[in-house]
Design a protein around this nucleic acid. Structure first.
Lengths: 224, 224
DNA sequence: AATGCTTATAATGGAGACAATTAATTTAGC
DNA sequence: GCTAAATTAATTGTCTCCATTATAAGCATT
């Protein structure tokens, strides 16, 4: 285990990202540089640089002279985001399966085990999304498309907020678990067509449930 | 025409991006903050922030405490980048065509005119790539997928270097012109299937020629 | 001569102070 | 009383300077 030196900017990035993803910073909320700097015991420079990086990830919107705010996706943006993911991840998977080695499949099996175990424990959402990301990346590793994988990971950072919501709120957990298991089985059988179909269903299905939830929430806000 | 105030960071971003795209800054070249700051008459802060933004665009690679370098794509990375573009742009186009209004088609026609005219003039590559981007975006506007379009534009900033090379070097110009004209005709006829096929061919064809050029270049460097 | 350690040098990372811009508030004019 | 200009306050943008880190050069040891 090598010790990794982290610059303050990186620490701020990680802290703010986690706060946005777990809801400690709410969507639409303005992010004041001075306040964040004081809270995190750094100067405004690393805060500014962190905000810029988070903007590139789509988690923050940065307007010159006006300040940064945590981004909020409306229903149609969530829709588009998940469509994109479905297309890209299906493509990655189909390119990957034929090249997946035994070792990689073994690794995926292990990750899936830990993923399923994590569900019961506390602050499940935190560790779950990291393990989930690792599991998916493992399945895509055969595709040998690093740029596409990076892109998918970036998109997933944005989708993560909504996926966590889904997990905590509805039966997202049990469904995800069974779909994940089935997906791995299909990969082992090298059944590309069915694996890809399941992947799309996995992503678009969660999209539908998340959209439904968002629409409900919008309604209840309007009523108020 | 409203005057737009720009921050120094934005000016540095634009200057450096253009220099990377037109080759004034070569791939692999280290980008020293102090040198750039002096050259552009600003302090190192806006330079650093600009480098971070360019990293998000994929034009620069930034390593903590080591510095930034202009990124260089090898043949397989170019390959992957153009595959990605082909998939995303084909998808955008197919979703867009059914919704393209007469006004948009008119706008595209005009942009295409200016695009074709720009080819003869001097510093063609500069204006060409901007007009080309506008033209493509116009054709995609019916898809109503702002995030996907943003993504494609980001990818194109990266591909732009190689496209310019292609234009200047080989017969990329004449081929691009005829393909662009034909593409617009197919859009007007609402012929989704053929338009999408042509789009893919347009992108993957240029990929092949660019790859060939890059391989040739690598060989000649090795010989030396 | 080669290896490992110490010291010098050059670059980046970050803090605090000041300038520029925006938004809010007050004041002047009708 | 209301609108518009002027002033003030709050926030961001940028500069200068210092701290930290990485690389290169020199030195001693074997």
């Amino acid at each position: 285990m090598t010790i990794v030196y982290k610059t303050r900017t990186q620490l701020v990035v990680e802290t703010l990202r986690e706060k946005i993803l777990n809801g400690a910073i709410k969507a639409g909320q303005p992010l004041r540089q001075a306040a964040l700097a004081e809270e995190l015991n750094v100067s405004r420079i690393p805060v500014r640089e962190a905000l810029l990086q988070l903007e590139a990830e789509g988690l923050v919107s940065f307007e010159p002279h006006k300040g940064a705010t945590a981004t909020e996706l409306n229903v149609s943006q969530v829709d588009e985001l998940f469509e994109l993911r479905a297309m890209l991840e299906a493509d990655l998977l189909s390119a990957s399966i034929p090249n997946l080695s035994e070792a990689k499949l073994e690794e995926a099996t292990e990750l899936l085990d830990r993923l399923n175990q994590s569900l019961g424990k506390e602050n499940a959402a935190n560790t779950w999304s990291e393990l989930n990301s690792n599991y998916h990346n493992c399945l895509y590793s055969g595709a040998n498309r690093p740029q596409t994988q990076d892109l998918v990971n970036t998109l997933n950072k944005n989708a993560d907020r909504y996926i966590r919501m889904h997990l905590l709120w509805a039966g997202g957990i049990s469904k995800a678990e069974s779909e994940h298991n089935e997906l791995l089985a299909l990969c082992k059988q090298k059944d590309v067509a069915n694996a890809v179909a399941l992947m799309k269903q996995h992503i678009l299905g969660s999209r539908d449930e998340i959209k439904e939830f968002l629409i409900e929430r919008e309604k209840s806000i309007e009523l108020k």
